[in-house]
């Protein structure tokens, strides 16, 4: 049994909030560079150039890459041999509060979805827990901006819609999103399970590296085909027209019911922010 103090969790979450908002991950930076090298339309090319300059300015000057520093989505994997001293929910929210303040991030959370009063400290986070063998604690902070979140969608297809129906729904969701989610986007796809399982998988798919290849060759082929279809939509970076509408497509799947084919699309913006630490 290993004991982890909740204050350690708060410190880690605070640090991850700042890092995720300020530093664009390497996999995204190289995908943006590749996209810039390939993009021929002048406006989209200069938009990609600006996104790379922006990432550089943010890292050098310790500024959030985007003013929408998002709602903090926190994934925690607790080792079975870990005991946490104190209240983990509270520790995570304390970490978010501190990280957002110390990182000069924007407070973007309202206490009630209809009455809309800002909580003033970007809490509460959206927290997911799962468990694994061992004695470590893994924390991922994924600040999610709502330019991209608003354009995400889940649909309960019929089994008869099949792969073609699922692919059409995914491409159509991204076509409708157009320039709103700050393309080039990353498409996180969840297929199977139940409605909420598909939605959660679509978010978890955004935590994979952008160039991650599905270990199942069937789904790897679907990822490739979807990426090609999305990049022929012509939306391009910032919606200025071009070939780089998406940097990557990642699919997670789960067994489902004989009557259903749930499909969820979570759109990640060009920065697809997330940072992980293991305690």
């Amino acid at each position: 049994m290993r004991i982890i103090e909740s204050c350690q969790i708060a410190d880690t979450v605070a640090k991850l909030c700042v890092q995720a908002n300020v530093c664009v991950n390497e996999d995204i930076l190289s995908a943006l560079e590749t996209a810039r090298a390939r993009e021929k339309t002048p406006l989209a090319h200069s938009a990609l150039d600006m996104l790379l300059k922006n990432a550089d300015i943010a890292a050098r000057e310790n500024l959030p890459v985007c003013q929408d520093t998002g709602m903090a989505v926190v994934f925690v994997t607790v080792g079975a041999d870990v005991h946490i001293n104190g209240n983990i929910d509270k520790a995570i929210n304390d970490g978010v509060r501190r990280g957002y303040r110390e990182g000069y991030c924007r407070n973007s959370v309202v206490i009630d979805p209809v009455r809309r009063v800002n909580t003033g400290d970007n809490t509460p986070a959206v927290i997911y827990y799962d468990f694994a063998p061992g004695c470590s604690l893994r924390i991922t902070v994924a600040p999610k901006g709502f330019g991209s979140e608003n354009m995400s969608a889940v649909r309960m297809l019929n089994p008869s819609d099949g792969l073609a129906g699922a692919e059409d729904f995914i491409v159509e969701t991204i076509r409708i999103a157009d320039a709103k989610p700050c393309p080039p986007i990353i498409a996180g796809i969840g297929i199977g399970g139940t409605m909420e399982k598909a939605a959660l998988m679509s978010k978890q798919a955004l935590l994979l590296d952008v160039d991650h290849i599905n270990p199942d060759p069937f789904w790897a082929g679907v990822e490739n085909r979807l990426l090609e279809r999305i990049n022929t939509l012509g939306i391009g970076a910032t919606g200025y027209g071009g070939i780089a509408t998406a940097l990557g497509v990642n699919i997670l799947t789960y067994p489902t019911h004989i009557a259903g084919l749930p499909v969820a699309v979570n759109i990640g913006c060009h920065a697809n922010r997330h940072r992980t630490a293991v305690l």
Binding site: A47, M50, L51, K53, N54, A55, I57, A58, E61, L63, P64, V65, C66, Q67, D68, G147, A179, K180, P181, C182, P183, A237, T238, G239, C269, H270, A271
Partner: peptide, 13 residues
């Protein structure tokens, strides 16, 4: 007019 979405650090300058 449009600005590049996501380039907040750039525009702050």
């Amino acid at each position: 007019l449009t600005a590049v979405g996501g380039a907040g650090a750039f525009y702050s300058k």
